[in-house]
Amino acid sequence: MTATPDTWVKSERQLARERARRRAGIRNGSLAAASTIVFLAVVVGGVLASPGWPSVQDKFFDWGEFKGAFPDVLDGFWMNVRIFLIAEPVILVLGLLVALARGLRNPLFFPLRALAVLYTDVFRGIPTILLVFMIGFGLPALRLQGLPTDPAVLGGGALVLSYGAYVAEVFRAGIESIHPSQRSAARSLGLSQAQALRFVVLPQAVRRVVPPLLNDFASLQKDTALVGTLGVVEALRQAQIHSAEDFNYTPYLAAAVLFIALTVPMARFTDHLAARAERRRAPGGK
């Protein structure tokens, strides 16, 4: 023991170590940059040199088309955003309720539990687009009084039913991932079953399932385009209309750009949350 914490001067050995580390950092950075440039050059060069490129450029990357279609596609995209914003909270509530119903142990609630199991099994099994058709076209055909007939509402409802089943399973997995000793500890303090769930199990479970939930929502954002199949004028439908006018696919590119602009921030946010949860768990976590 030579130095106390406040008289610590970095040793020659440590300074050399830090210099070496800096040099390695610079070398790694230049290597990454160089390999990226070479990679891009090869890919772009390959595409541009291909014999079909001029016609592809014409059909898919026509700047004039892009500018012409973009305002309408953006207008349609607003419909996607609205469907998403309304469906998302409803899905969360539905998913949580179904997950809780599956956990009910009181024999009185057996029908509810059975219904919840049936719901998740059936609606996870049906392809989302089929469900959109069945509800969008089938429900109005029944001509029942009081049922909504707006295709946007029906399509949104189909998305809610489909995603609700997935989200219910995510919540259930989260609840089951909480160690039984947490429940024992809560019960031993005199908390009732419902209180243990509400104050001890659920808060931990919800925190744990935020990243997978965000993942499902990124996918929901894209699936709002399925509602277009019912004739709702949203981004994809607008792109289709423009595309048909001039036999040019560039409007689809405009729609793709908009969807990417919405999902990429969500994906980065999910990564950020997952990384934070990982860091939290790391030091001596249980």
Binding site: S181, Q182, S188, G190, V200, Q204, R207, K286
Partner: peptide, 21 residues
């Protein structure tokens, strides 16, 4: 009623079981 009983008995576990959140 087990909840009533547990109000009068405290229990401490080997693995602490504190609520981490």
């Amino acid at each position: 009623d087990p909840d009533e009983v547990r109000k009068r008995i405290g229990m401490v576990f080997q693995s602490y079981n504190l609520f981490p959140h």
